Amino acid sequence: MQTIVLEAEKRNTKTKGALKALRKKGLVPAVLYHKGEPSLTLAVKESALRKLVYTTESHLVNLKFSDGTETQAIMKSRQFDPVSDQILHADFQLLKADEMIETEVPTLFKGTPVGTIKGGRVQVIMHKLRIRTLPADIPEHIEFDISKMDIGDTLHIKEANEMFTSAKWKILGDPSISIVSVVAPTKAVEIIAAETAATEPEVIAKGKEKSAEKAEKK
């Protein structure tokens, strides 16, 4: 997994006015936490943070402080302004090499399902999956080959874990939860197709009638 370095500043400012001033400087208020330890309030550059936010992959983070120390973490959540889409806040979880963590990882699907050749369509239910693993074993994404899926087939968490028995991580959640399906065409599409098929001969027939009328007049 790729690691992104973020320069971070420790901060003591917590009032709304102080946080607003930070954001005007292009900084994002953040918190670094670990279970059983005091949280640390930070500020990171929004421009650098966007590399973590606007990506389809998972990344580890090295928070680099001005005193030369570095801390490995993972971003757990972020908040956005609903109007401007500005990043308002971010939460980071401190990582320890020997401690298992739970985190979300994007899903990736490859292959053309046989069901789509028959008119079906792919329906992705889970764009991210929650896993449990050690920090060093977090994958950038989890890739599934769906080329053999037919119409009506569904991949659940149970089957997904069976596919990756040798992986150093485990997908969490109810085993019956669906991840991706190949579904039949909707009725609306079928109706349109049927109407089109029924209308085309009529149009052709009308065209022939008009041609015959012109020939008779001549």
Rank of each mutant, 00 (worst) to 15 (best):
I131W: 10
V124P: 04
K20H: 11
T69K: 11
T71E: 13
I101Y: 08
I4L: 14
K45A: 15
Q123T: 09
K76V: 13
L19E: 00
T55R: 02
R132Q: 15
K35W: 07
T107A: 03
V122G: 05
V83F: 15
R23I: 03
H89G: 01
D81P: 05
H59G: 01
A18I: 00
K96Y: 14
K16I: 03
K24H: 12
G17Q: 04
I74L: 13
S58F: 15
Y54K: 05
T69Y: 02
V5R: 10
K45W: 07
V124I: 15
H89N: 09
S66A: 14
K45E: 14
V44T: 03
K64Q: 10
L95D: 12
V5K: 11
E99D: 05
D85E: 06
Q123V: 14
T41Y: 12
K51Y: 14
V44L: 03
S84M: 08
I87R: 09
N62F: 06
T116Y: 08
P113G: 04
L22P: 00
E57S: 12
K118C: 03
T13A: 10
T55V: 04
L94W: 14
N62Y: 06
M75A: 09
L22Q: 10
L52R: 08
A73Y: 10
G120S: 10
K51L: 15
T13C: 01
E99F: 07
E99T: 10
V53P: 01
T133R: 01
T41C: 02
Q72H: 09
L42S: 09
K110N: 12
L94T: 12
H127G: 06
E104L: 13
A8Q: 03
V83Q: 09
T3D: 01
K118L: 13
T55D: 05
H127K: 08
G119H: 06
Q72P: 00
P135E: 04
P135L: 04
T15C: 01
G36M: 07
Y33P: 00
Y54L: 06
K20S: 14
T55L: 02
K45M: 07
T112D: 12
K76Y: 10
L134S: 04
L52T: 10
I117W: 08
I131V: 07
F109I: 04
L32F: 08
R11H: 03
T56Q: 14
A90W: 09
V114N: 06
T15A: 02
A30G: 03
H59K: 06
H59D: 00
Q93L: 15
T69P: 00
T103Y: 13
L22D: 04
N12S: 13
G115T: 09
V5Y: 02
D98F: 05
L88M: 15
T116V: 15
A43V: 04
A73T: 10
I101L: 15
H127R: 12
A90V: 09
L22E: 06
A21W: 02
